[in-house]
């Protein structure tokens, strides 16, 4: 067992996740939102690692799942930055309020 109880780790990862939500909701720059999304995904990967210590028979599959999440986050970052660059090319701005994000 780890010296620190599992629940403390879980709450820490929830703090990371919530900080990510806050950033994603408030950032006006698309890159800022992407940074916040990375935080959220990191919290998910951390959750898998935490549970890999305790969940019955989950030790290897927990770490493997975290590995998949990290790879997905990298793919997501690549796709996100490509789109951000494409928008920047045609608008010279990546402020989300310039791109009328909430129009219906």
């Amino acid at each position: 067992m780890t010296p620190v109880p599992e629940s403390h780790y879980l709450i820490f990862s929830l703090i990371l996740f919530s900080a990510g939500i806050f950033g994603a909701l408030t950032r006006r720059n698309a890159l800022g939102v992407l940074i916040a999304l990375e935080l959220m995904l990191n919290a998910v990967a951390l959750n898998f690692v935490i549970f890999s210590r305790t969940a019955p028979e989950g030790s290897a599959s927990g770490q493997v799942s975290a590995f998949f999440i990290i790879a997905l986050a990298a793919a997501g970052a690549a796709a996100g930055l490509a789109i951000v660059l494409a928008v920047y090319r045609s608008r010279k701005s990546i402020q989300t309020d310039d791109t009328n994000l909430l129009k219906w």
Partner: peptide, 19 residues
């Protein structure tokens, strides 16, 4: 660092390299 404390050395390395 927390991954290391949880005994996931490989993931700690992947985290640093990839992220």
């Amino acid at each position: 660092g927390l991954y290391l404390s949880l005994g996931a050395e490989f993931l700690a390395m992947v985290q640093i390299l990839v992220y």
